[in-house]
Simulated scan of single mutants.
Amino acid sequence: MADAAITVEGARKRYGDKQALDGLDLLVGRGTVHGVLGPNGAGKTTLVRILSTLLRPDGGRVEVAGHDVVREAGRVRLRIGLLGQHAALDEELGGRQNLEMFGRLHHLRARHARVRADQLLERFGLADTGRKAVKRYSGGMRRRLDLAASLVTDPEVLFLDEPTTGLDPRGRTEVWASVRSLVGGGTTVLLTTQYLEEADQLADRISVVDHGRVIADGTADELKARTGGDRIDVVLRDGGQLGAAVALLPFPAEGVSVDTDRRLLSAPVTDRMTALAGAVRALEEAGIEAEDIALRRPTLDEVFLHLTGDDHRVKEAA
């Protein structure tokens, strides 16, 4: 990819007898959000540490913003920002003081650091809280300030390593809005996450990682299509009629799944409207009352389980 912001070819990294990255390949286009999805231990954080020059790969080629992360580590660092899983803020200082401190650590002059701090506070909706001690911030405010700190040098590429872990739904939504704003301004974002909804909401493309390798790559819709396309879900008023409903509905028996606790049967469909009309007609003729009938796309949770073929369960956002 000629306009790639990140290029990874055959990256390898071993910790003792554990192969954290096992020939991983990845391409990330400029000005996009690229999600890296996988369970704990899949290699996501190791990948981010290598891309941000905090860790040297054992093999392969890794470039960020056109520079090799090993041979040109200094040039890479000038072009990137990093938001890790844990906040890197001084709890006793105010938001503005934290950002000024980060600016000075990046060798900005005092006046430039103050101006940059004010710009970032305004950009992330924190201008009115700049003097408040960080320990009094909400989780979402703290994460937005941490994100602002990673942008002090206006990086070309930003790495977000599970940025909303531990946040409530409101906090996650605040961070998502901030990320969308960044990409609108031209920043490239690599997002690692365990939250399927987060990848679905933010990522232009998603790479699914398992056992140190990319096992699938595409848009959310492309990945969902790999599980068999659309499904129809039927919730019956009387769960005791599930067996009869499965027998009479016009769907292949081998594709139907049944959840007795939820009084739900689910089946893959090819023609959405024909399937919906056929299900409604068959149930009415049999006198079986449906509480709800809905067409839906597969979830990323189902995609992940389908692709890995194991019992890993990626956490769904609450």
Rank of each mutant, 00 (worst) to 15 (best):
G66E: 09
R297H: 12
K132E: 12
T53Q: 07
G212W: 09
L120S: 08
G66M: 10
A113N: 04
L82Q: 01
L47S: 09
M1P: 09
K315Q: 15
Y15C: 09
P57K: 09
A2N: 14
G38A: 03
A275C: 11
G139V: 02
A244M: 11
T165D: 02
P155W: 13
T173P: 00
R313G: 11
R123F: 10
G166N: 03
L248M: 13
A275V: 10
V214K: 06
D311S: 15
R180M: 09
V134G: 05
L158Y: 12
A2P: 08
A267M: 08
T299R: 12
L242H: 11
G185F: 08
D259N: 14
G171N: 03
G255S: 14
A199T: 08
E284N: 15
M1Q: 11
L105P: 01
V115A: 14
G35C: 05
R14H: 13
A286R: 12
S52L: 03
I215K: 05
V134Q: 03
V189Y: 11
A294F: 06
V256E: 00
L283C: 12
E302H: 10
I288R: 09
D233G: 12
A133D: 08
E91L: 14
L236R: 10
V303M: 09
E285V: 12
H34S: 04
A4H: 13
E198S: 02
E291C: 01
H112N: 10
Q85H: 13
I293M: 10
D128N: 12
T274K: 13
V209R: 07
G171Y: 08
R262I: 00
F102H: 04
G287D: 11
H312I: 09
G94A: 03
R79A: 15
F251V: 01
K13N: 06
S207N: 01
L151Q: 15
V69T: 11
G255H: 12
L89D: 02
A203H: 06
D210A: 05
T46K: 05
Q201V: 14
H312P: 09
G186R: 05
D310A: 05
R30K: 15
R77K: 15
S207C: 00
V209Y: 10
I232H: 04
E100G: 00
G59Y: 11
D301E: 15
D217R: 05
G125E: 01
G229Q: 07
A73K: 06
R116S: 08
L249G: 04
T164K: 02
P169V: 04
T227C: 11
L99T: 00
D210W: 08
G255K: 08
A216M: 07
V183S: 04
D90I: 04
R14V: 14
P250A: 09
P39V: 03
P39W: 05
T193E: 08
D259R: 10
A127R: 13
E92M: 12
G239D: 06
E174T: 02
A133S: 14
L99V: 02
D261T: 11
V62G: 03
E198F: 10
G185V: 02
T129S: 14
R226C: 00
G94L: 06
A20C: 06
V134M: 05
V258S: 01
L196Q: 07
E122I: 00
R12Q: 14
D204Y: 11
G139K: 03
E291W: 06
V69F: 13
H312M: 02
F251E: 01
R170F: 13
